[in-house]
Design a protein around this nucleic acid. Structure first.
Length: 357
DNA sequence: GATTCGTGGTC
DNA sequence: TGACCAAGAAT
């Protein structure tokens, strides 16, 4: 027996009109909405994965300035790609984007696949990103399902997992509903519109139902259940701030994380030292830095070079000027900024172009 | 299906 | 103020 249809074709048509009308009146002016270049759309979608719009805007602009097309990205050094990603997090995204660009050049004659199915075969492009690029850049009528879409549609229908309905089953219902709702004439705008609604109106907390274009269709007006998260743990660590002066410049000792490391491989950070061996007299300051489920309390010590022993194989003297444009971890960037070794990034100052010798 | 991967803004 | 979380993908 077929499931009861909750929305007639008329209702679907009205919802499309309500959403697209709201979007055209309220959409934010974002840099990736000013282009139709599939490569630029791609870069924006990778950066936006699990990352807020506000954090992406300047990084997107800088990335496209230094890698304006697939060819320039494909021939870049990975360290320079990571340098432009420094501080954004989830660095695997940058490495996969780089590898995917090389794959497009070597295996696809330099031309990106144009369908969601084709895009899906590139590293770093999953179902969401494939649908986003195909719909926005090529008008393919395929619905995106991200955290926003899942929340918006679940709230409208009052869907949530419980004893007899698994999360996967809810997800399948959301998929079906999303694909029913998408406007086949304006798939890119429709997909961006429903995400924009989730990001600005139908937010996780305190949804603005009074101004929501879909309030009339919504069964719950903002109800949403989220699973509890694992508690954060706290860990105390220490690192060494070691500088030296040459005739013309300040240099800082930095250590490159091993390529085999599962976390942030290849990125640069301050040499770590044992907490117990740190000297109180050499203490500079303490910073807090949360990475995933761990809240780090980081003690920074100013130490002589000799205190870095046998494990210093990956250490290099780096000029302060160059350090700021390298692939630093977010923590290293935070410490070097606080210690005034490198300048803080102003909002309008783009990251320096990758420099290599 | 559950884990893992970063970071900084928000309330 | 610290928990929450943001346009996911890979394994």
């Amino acid at each position: 027996m077929p499931r009861r249809r909750r929305h007639s074709p008329d209702t679907v048509a009205r919802m499309r009109q309500e959403l697209l009308g709201w979007y055209h009146r309220n959409k934010r002016d974002l840099p990736w909405r000013r282009t139709t270049d599939p490569y630029a759309i791609w870069v924006s979608e990778i950066m936006l994965q699990q990352t807020r719009v506000a954090a992406v805007i300047d990084r997107y602009t800088a990335f496209l300035q230094y890698f304006p097309d697939i060819q320039s990205l494909a021939k870049a050094h990975e360290q320079d790609v990571l340098a432009l990603w420094s501080g954004l997090g989830y660095y695997r995204r940058a490495r996969m984007l780089h590898k995917a660009a090389q794959s497009v050049v070597s295996d696809h004659n330099g031309v990106m696949p144009t369908t969601a199915e084709g895009l899906r075969s590139l590293p770093g492009i999953g179902s969401y990103t494939a649908a986003a690029i195909a719909s926005i850049a090529h008008n393919e009528p395929i619905a995106v399902i991200d955290g926003n879409v899942e929340r918006v549609l679940s709230r409208i229908q009052g869907w949530h997992s419980h004893d007899t309905i698994s999360e996967a089953a809810v997800r399948r219902k959301v998929d079906d509903f999303a694909q029913t709702l998408i406007d086949p004439r304006h798939p890119g705008d429709y997909n961006q519109a429903i995400m924009e609604l989730g990001a600005t109106i139908c937010t996780p907390r305190n949804p603005q139902c009074l101004v929501c274009p879909w309030a009339r269709e919504c069964h719950t007006l903002g109800e949403h259940r989220t699973p509890k998260r694992a508690a954060m743990t706290t860990r105390e660590i220490a690192c060494a701030l070691i500088t030296r002066e040459t005739e013309s410049r300040t240099e800082i000792l930095l250590e490159q994380r091993a390529a085999a490391n599962t976390v942030m491989p290849g990125l640069w950070e301050l040499p770590s030292i044992e907490l117990t061996k740190s000297l109180k007299t050499a203490h500079v300051f303490t910073v807090r830095h949360a990475i995933m489920q761990v809240n780090y309390i980081v003690h920074v010590y100013s130490l002589p070079t000799e205190s870095i022993s046998s494990s210093a194989a990956r250490c290099n003297w780096i000029s302060a000027d160059r350090a700021s444009s390298m692939a630093l971890t977010g923590l290293a960037r935070k410490i070097l900024t606080k210690a005034h070794v490198i300048p803080s990034r102003s909002r309008h100052q783009l990251p320096h172009p990758p420099s290599r010798e």
